[in-house]
Write a protein that binds this DNA or RNA. Structure first.
Length: 272
DNA sequence: CGGACAACCTGGCGGC
DNA sequence: TGCCGCCAGGTTGTCC
């Protein structure tokens, strides 16, 4: 489910309810969901810590505590939300982690497929250290992107999904960025012209920014922390539009193929 | 470096 | 209605 725009929307949605609160207890029922540390250490350590700040790095929710950092990765079906202790939510049926706050509210982590992971570490770099640049940051300049592309030879879509190359792009926004840049997903990085690299750099930033402005794409599982849907799915031009007419050129019909084991959508007419 | 593939899990949907 | 196979927004590890 969640890519950079969905995680950013989630972070913005839980920030106010978490910052300044103290975690007084923690509960979970799926041990594999706790990546680190071991359950006993986790419970003992997180209890009593206060939330200083809530941020995002790539697709990770980063909760900075008094003396540690809690990271949550939503993977495909994760949702997090903060609600009163006695509140009931549709997604509760898949809740595997609860963090009890000091104001009779809980941070809940729901995840039907159980792919999501929780980390409690001294330094977030232990988890996020190998990630590539944040595509919407000032550091991610066209020059930086061009130089990085020039060192690569692999299939461009797979490269966009490689979190060590660019952090936060997932299957939806990779397809959308390539569509916007008129580049076929199976092209290899070493065939891209300078113009195409620039268009792709623009495309990545544009589709991610648009995704944030629309508060994420709710195609299937993703919901904002308040339980409602984002609207980015309404603005997609390639992803999920198999068999439909291309809105960009008005000529092609969107095709679906497989690239690197992922469903991939593109217009054979205007993506070359 | 890179590509193919299996694993991790469950739910929803289309087809028969 | 029921069952079956397939698909899914992500990542990691293995093998070649």
């Amino acid at each position: 489910m969640p890519e950079l725009p969905e995680v950013e929307t989630t972070v913005r949605g839980i920030r106010a309810a978490l910052e300044g609160r103290t975690i007084v207890d923690a509960w979970f029922d799926f041990a594999n969901g706790l990546a680190t540390p071991d359950p006993t250490t986790f419970h003992a350590r997180i209890t009593g810590q206060t939330v200083r700040e809530v941020t995002r790095r790539a697709k990770y929710i980063v909760i900075h505590l008094t003396d540690a950092t809690l990271l949550i990765h939503l993977k495909m079906t994760g949702r997090v939300y903060v609600v009163p202790d006695d509140a009931e939510d549709y997604a509760d049926q898949w809740v595997h982690f609860r963090f009890q706050l000091d104001n009779a509210q809980q941070l809940r982590f729901s995840d039907s497929r159980k792919f999501g992971r929780v980390y409690l570490v001294d330094d977030m770099d232990e988890v996020t250290g190998s990630l590539g640049p944040e595509p919407l940051s000032d550091e991610f300049t066209l020059d930086v992107f061009r130089e990085a592309i020039r060192k690569r030879s692999g299939i461009i879509k797979a490269l966009l999904l490689n979190q060590e190359f660019v952090a936060g792009v997932g299957n939806i926004y990779a397809d959308e960025a390539l569509h916007m840049a008129h580049i076929r997903p199976k092209r290899t990085a070493d065939t891209l012209t300078d113009k195409e690299i620039e268009d792709l750099w623009n495309g990545i930033r544009t589709v991610l920014q648009a995704g944030i402005e629309r508060e994420g794409a709710s195609i299937n599982w993703y919901r904002k922390p308040d339980g409602t849907k984002g609207t980015a799915q309404n603005g997609l031009l390639a992803y999920g539009r198999t068999g439909e007419s291309c809105k960009t050129c008005g000529i092609g019909i969107i095709e679906k193929i497989t690239v690197g084991q992922r469903g991939t959508h593109y217009c054979p007419s205007c993506q070359r």
